[in-house]
């Protein structure tokens, strides 16, 4: 029985380890996404300021805004598209309007396409870094200050920055 015991313990340990590994895939996946740009995820923290401007080429950045059907807002970019030099710091605003009669808290999830360019999309300041409370009927412009990394490979000429606005998870759970 003791020979059994030590083998059983090892196998059980392996099971527990693999269960934990399932959860470990969550942060691993984030790292993986950062590297490969799956789903165009961008950093959730502010990037450093650009150190140079590449005047030699221009890229087009388009802005999109959508919102979850569960949150009644109007949400749209003030600017549809910009042509800019990599390294050139720009600010654009997204306008949100709370159409409900109650205060809501929203979060915006960014996604950049093509995904492989996502890590070259640098946000210095973004309304997506924090949750955004909105008073009943409130309308506000939410800025994002960004630049395109001059290291962006030359094959990318069009980037799209898309935000999807959700009711914040803490609030929807208590709904």
């Amino acid at each position: 029985m003791s020979a059994h015991r030590s083998l059983i313990n090892k196998l059980l340990l392996a099971c527990v380890a693999m269960f934990a590994f399932g959860f470990a895939l969550v942060p691993l996946y984030d790292v993986f996404c950062d590297i490969t740009g799956i789903n165009g995820k961008t950093d959730k923290v502010a990037a450093a300021a650009p150190d140079r401007i590449d005047r030699g080429r221009e890229v087009t950045v388009e802005f999109l805004a959508t919102h979850d059907p569960a949150v009644a807002v109007n949400f749209a970019p003030e600017t549809a598209r910009l042509r800019l030099n990599p390294g050139d710091l720009q600010t654009v605003s997204f306008v949100v309007e709370n159409r409900t009669g109650e205060p809501i808290v929203t979060t915006a999830v960014p996604s950049v396409s093509p995904g492989e360019a996502a890590r070259h999309f640098m946000k210095i300041e973004c309304f997506c870094f924090q949750e955004q409370p909105l008073a009943p009927g409130e309308r506000k412009a939410m800025p994002v200050q960004f630049y395109v990394d001059p290291e962006l490979p030359a094959r990318f000429k069009n980037l799209t920055l898309s935000y999807r606005l959700y009711r914040s998870v803490g609030q929807s759970a208590s709904r």
């Binding site: 789903n39 165009g40 999109l64 959508t66 059907p69 999830v109 996604s111 396409s113 898309s162 999807r164």
Partner: peptide, 27 residues
Amino acid sequence: SANDVIHAWWVPELGIKRDAIPGFINE
């Protein structure tokens, strides 16, 4: 992209099939 759940846009004669994932954009 998608509004609610994952869909996939498929037209065989265009050779295009791409998942539409809520919250994220693909191109």
